[in-house]
């Protein structure tokens, strides 16, 4: 399974997303990383270009709800129907909100790498 990990918005905190990238690679996933400060449009077009199976958004600045709304719009505009998820600094109370917007899953702050890997192994069967 091919995963696009992305950094939308202006937030430069990338330790977490890189740690997850290594974790997923070690667990046998193929990872494509966007690098910092990408617009949602750029992220979605990278996803299409690279034919990935899922997209992860890493957001630590608090703009996750705004960016998730935009993600939903751009995915629809591009007729892209693959699961996407949100991680970073996400308050537990926003997990449901993000999932209601359209994220397949949102990982609250302090989620362990093993839990994320387990989630991917689970959706891998379905994709």
């Amino acid at each position: 399974m091919k995963v696009l990990l992305s950094k939308p918005g202006l937030d430069g905190h990338d330790v977490g997303v890189k740690v997850l990238a290594y974790g997923l690679i070690d667990a046998g996933f193929e990872v494509v990383y966007t690098g910092l400060r990408k617009s949602i449009e750029e992220i979605v077009s990278m996803a299409i270009e690279n034919k990935v199976d899922t997209i992860g958004l890493s957001i630590l600045s608090g703009t996750h709800l705004v960016l998730a709304e935009r993600m939903k719009e751009v995915m629809t505009e591009n007729n892209l129907d693959i699961p996407w998820f949100v991680g970073g600094n996400v308050p537990a109370q926003d997990v449901e909100k993000l999932e209601a917007i359209g994220a397949n899953k949102a990982f609250a702050t302090s989620t362990k790498v093993a839990e994320v890997v387990a989630y991917f192994n689970e959706i891998k069967v379905k994709v």
Partner: peptide, 22 residues
């Protein structure tokens, strides 16, 4: 704030949701 640090004005679309945040 991040737009100032990244060289974007407050009215730049990329500054959405970030003006005065940090």
């Amino acid at each position: 704030d991040l737009p100032t640090q990244c060289g974007l004005d407050s009215d730049d679309p990329r500054a959405l949701g970030e003006v005065g945040r940090v």
